[in-house]
Amino acid sequence: MKALAARRHHRAAPVVLLLMALLAVGGVYAAFAPSPAQAATASTADIETGKKLFQANCATCHGPSAEGTDIAPSLVGVGAAAVDFQVSTGRMPMAMDGPQAPAKPPQMNEEQTAALAAYVASLGAGPAIPTDDQVDPTQGDAAEGMALFRTNCAMCHNAVGAGGALSSGKAAPSLMNTSDRNIFQAMETGPGPMPVFNDAVITAEGKRDIIAFLTEQDKGSAGGNPLGGLGPVAEGLWAWVLGLAVMIGGAVWIGAKSS
């Protein structure tokens, strides 16, 4: 204790104390924090809240009981996964009409999203929100995932998931900042122009392999800056605006050197 007391006034003491306090608070939070809501057991209260949220925010287009209208599809049977995907990525509620719903900062918080998902799930059976286990990239095989991604996903989302164009203003978004849960849900529910990849097309393990492959991509390129992962057009652009421009600059410089 004496040694500790002697160092009370050391100038690093406040920093050390602060770190310890942060560690303690973080540890307590981690121990007691509620685990993310798994909508497996939705209470009737949740469903009621969800119904109210639905009628306030979604019913204009999807109809008062989610039966669908001329401008928006029925949500009976789309499942909690579809709602969680659309609402947690901010795609729904849509801010304005367009070729497709773009991702934006979410309008609903986690509880509201869960309530909405519970309400829609109560209308008819559909894909549930995946468990953490189902989307855990460490349990997937990146090589299998790459093979699956290449044959099923890359034609729209680009070889590394950088995104690509579809017809008439629609687009397959970049997957680089999409959460593992949302990737899984998108495959299960087929949002917008995307087809549904149910378990008959890509098994649950396959989906996890794909997530593992995409996680590999986040580790960066072995060759340096990946230039957006967009391929030869981006490379050509850099060759001109950086490489050749610098070389022409060099030629001007060397040419201007007194002879």
Binding site: T151, A154, A162, G164, S221, L227, P232
Partner: peptide, 28 residues
């Protein structure tokens, strides 16, 4: 040394069926 180019390991081994979005030739 600093800018990655033609990262073939992203495209995978050739097989005539897949085509990825953004498939383009070099600029020329």
């Amino acid at each position: 040394a600093t800018l990655s180019i033609n990262s073939v390991w992203n495209y995978g081994p050739y097989d005539p069926s897949p085509v990825s979005a953004g498939a383009q030739p070099d600029w020329y």
